[in-house]
Amino acid sequence: MNTIDCSPIVFMRASFWVFVWKPSMNLREALGRSIRSLRRHRGLSQEAFDVVSSRTYISTLERGLKSPTLEKLDEIAKIMDVHPAALLCLTYSLMSESEASAQIEAIRTEARRLLAIYKKGAKG
């Protein structure tokens, strides 16, 4: 009898979406799951992205087979009406056991620190 080991799969509930987190998930897979989940939540078909990409390209992203460029990620995020950084935050949340709110706070703190360094350097 063939069995499938599902022990590393943990179901997490974030708002009204249900995501599947796997400890072995790589960045491309997590980004693909994020794109697919958000696209479905927004009620968009893969064809809705034809202004920026083909349906097959979106499909390969969602399956974690390819990684988009920053420009392409920005275009995809705009179609889904979400900031690209929020999409990346969701992606990294899927790869981590920590709470998304803790990650968001860490990002906020680090962004403030980096902005202060940038502003200090820009004055000099």
Rank of each mutant, 00 (worst) to 15 (best):
T3F: 10
L73C: 03
R108K: 10
F19M: 08
C6H: 03
L31D: 06
K123D: 14
T60A: 13
K22F: 09
L87V: 04
M1S: 11
A86V: 07
K22G: 05
K78N: 12
S96K: 04
C6T: 06
I117N: 13
S98E: 15
M1I: 04
K78D: 12
A100H: 12
E105A: 12
R13Q: 14
S96R: 07
R36W: 09
A102I: 11
L70G: 13
R108P: 00
L88K: 00
L31T: 03
R108S: 11
C89H: 07
T69C: 00
A111I: 12
T109N: 14
K120W: 11
I104G: 01
A85D: 14
T69N: 02
A30I: 03
L88F: 02
G124Y: 13
A77W: 02
G124D: 15
A116S: 15
E97N: 12
F11C: 01
Y57R: 08
V10M: 07
N2Q: 08
S37N: 14
V20E: 13
M95H: 03
M12T: 06
A116K: 14
H83K: 04
I9Y: 08
M80K: 01
R113D: 14
M25H: 04
S37C: 11
I58V: 15
G43Q: 08
A77I: 00
E47W: 05
G64D: 04
R108T: 09
S45Q: 06
W17P: 00
E71K: 11
E71D: 12
L94T: 05
N26S: 06
M1P: 02
Q103I: 13
K22C: 10
S54R: 09
A122P: 01
T91F: 01
V18Y: 02
N2F: 08
V10L: 08
M95R: 14
R40Y: 04
S34T: 14
E47N: 08
R28G: 05
L94C: 04
A77R: 01
R42F: 05
R63K: 13
R13W: 01
A111G: 03
A100D: 14
E97P: 02
P23Y: 04
L90M: 13
P84Q: 06
K123V: 07
R108L: 10
L90I: 12
L115I: 09
R42T: 06
P23W: 03
R55L: 05
R42H: 07
